[in-house]
Design a binder for these strands. Structure first.
Length: 236
DNA sequence: ACCCAGGGTCATA
DNA sequence: TATGACCATGGG
């Protein structure tokens, strides 16, 4: 276990614990999967528009997706950007579902096999696969994304080697066996908090270090040539 | 009028 | 295996 990392997560809980996260446990698994694909390299607001359009069309379902005309699908997911690619990615994921005997069967597979099948699906890479494992299948899998790497790099901690797998293993080792942050629920909670934190305070540009409880322990916030930190006028 | 966002694929060397 | 082009909408 890595105490500074655990303390960091506790601080995130204090700052963002009351915020709502767009994938609560009752979100339908297919909606989570579609969202994970549609949010690739875009903002959540754009992805959410596409999800709502799919919902309105009754297309948050692998069978419906698989039987929907490609042009129609492209039109539905247009607001998420890269709509031609993403329409094909949804089709490919729907095919993976059907090949497994349905979404429920796919998500019931053992984690290694589930991850293998997701990664073998065109359009699904490590991050999207782990997002689905964690939030749709409820597995003990850490999601590594741009937010995760940015916040931990700024904090001044991280794996020695800068690959996706190294970050993932480092995170898992950093929290285990802490009951609150390890395990499936812990991994999901930690990632959700990191995303909220990176969006609201630890932003790429104009980070609001002045509002951040972690500031005393953050390398980035205390650099001599300091980042442009705003002064605190933000309440928790 | 820029610039970039919670990636992934493909071509090239 | 490493790097870069490409995808494309919407918000700052």
């Amino acid at each position: 276990m890595n105490p500074p990392v655990v303390r960091f997560l506790e601080a995130l809980e204090a700052m963002h614990g009351n915020e709502r996260w767009h994938w609560d446990p009752e979100t339908h698994p297919f909606e989570v999967c579609a969202g994970a694909i549609l949010v690739q390299n875009t903002t959540w607001t754009n992805a959410e528009r596409a999800v709502e359009r799919l919902r309105a069309a009754g297309a948050l379902d692998p069978v419906v997706i698989a039987t929907t005309d490609l042009n129609r699908l492209e039109d539905l997911v247009r607001p998420s950007g890269q709509f031609r690619q993403k329409a094909r990615k949804l089709l490919a994921f729907a095919a993976t579902c059907l090949a497994a005997g349905g979404l429920e069967c796919l998500l019931a597979l053992p984690t290694p096999e589930l991850r293998r099948r997701l990664l073998a699906t065109w359009g699904i890479g490590p991050e999207t696969a782990d997002c689905i494992c964690c939030y749709a299948a409820g597995r003990d899998v850490f999601v590594v994304d741009a937010y995760t790497m940015r916040t931990f790099r700024r904090l001044g901690v991280g794996p020695s080697s800068d690959t996706y797998e190294q970050w993932q293993a480092w995170l898992a080792a950093a929290v285990a066996p802490h009951p609150r942050w390890s395990g499936a629920a812990g991994a999901a909670r930690a990632h959700a908090l990191i995303v909220l934190h990176a969006k609201r305070l630890c932003r790429k540009r104009q980070p609001r270090c002045g509002d951040c409880l972690v500031r005393p322990n953050c390398r980035y916030a205390n650099e001599e040539t300091g980042p442009p930190c705003s002064q605190g006028r933000f309440r928790y």
